[in-house]
Design a binder for these strands. Structure first.
Lengths: 134, 134
DNA sequence: CCTGGGAACTCTCCATCGGTAAGTAGCCAC
DNA sequence: GTGGCTACTTACCGATGGAGAGTTCCCAGG
């Protein structure tokens, strides 16, 4: 675990606007559709099982849920615990690192909730301007 | 159609965890790889031309840059201005609504910058645990 | 012994998406 | 009329995401 004192130095050496910079990959990963929702769910609800998550994130395929969880586990954001019972029980929860993402992520979801109406109106106006149907 | 007067009420009636809810689409759009970078660039640098953006977001294809800008324009986040000169000059800038997204987005990019090292370390540890090569 | 059932995947097939690169439009200088 | 500039648009194609069936592990029931 690094100390936080040298954060400024650490951040100054990466640039997400540069192709090939790892920070762009990371931004892409945490900005991913299902990652945002999985992290949000685990943040609000705490520990969850695979099928619970699948139900709550309505519309996610099992394949994508597995892939997303694996990626988040690899990045140290989610902890995966297998309980060797019958049938097997697998629980997912945020790591301390994962919890530090809750704030920024909540910012995003709250913005989208708060400005839904404006965006919807803008879309309608745009479609009228450009003559789109529906 | 919901009324806009009661923003707090308005946000409570949408749920990005529900399939088909427009807020999920919106979250997906603003959480998009290129959208984050385009909005970030326009936020930091102000008005930019097409080719300027393409240079700064190294690795973006013209197709994706066009698509992203169009989507952001449709959502009322970006203003597109065509100057009928020769050759034509097109400028992009954030709308007031787009500016309200700067904060949440900066939160995300800063998090990714600040925690790069931890994530990179977690990935290495995971790859060692699971026996991946590279 | 064989079937069935629950949880968490894993695999296969197919449609859509993103990247690459070449083509288009409008207009002016040569 | 050929080339050049800017901002796209289009065609092609490999990679990615969704739908759904199959797999593994173990135990209960007939």
């Amino acid at each position: 675990m690094r100390t936080v004192e040298t954060v400024t130095d650490a951040t100054s050496s990466w640039d997400p606007y540069e192709q090939g910079c790892p920070s762009r990959d990371l931004l892409d990963r945490i900005g991913d559709k299902w990652s945002i929702l999985v992290l949000g769910e685990l943040g609000e609800h705490g520990t969850s099982r695979f099928t619970e998550l699948r139900k709550r994130l309505s519309g996610v395929s099992e394949k994508m849920l597995t892939q997303t969880l694996r990626a988040l586990e690899r990045d140290g954001l989610v902890l995966r615990t297998v309980h060797p019972e019958v049938p097997v029980r697998v629980e997912y929860e945020l790591t301390p690192l994962g919890h530090t993402l809750r704030g920024p992520l909540r910012g995003l979801t709250q913005w989208s909730l708060q400005h839904m109406a404006e965006v919807l109106a803008a879309r309608e106006a745009y479609d009228v301007r450009t003559g789109q149907t529906g």
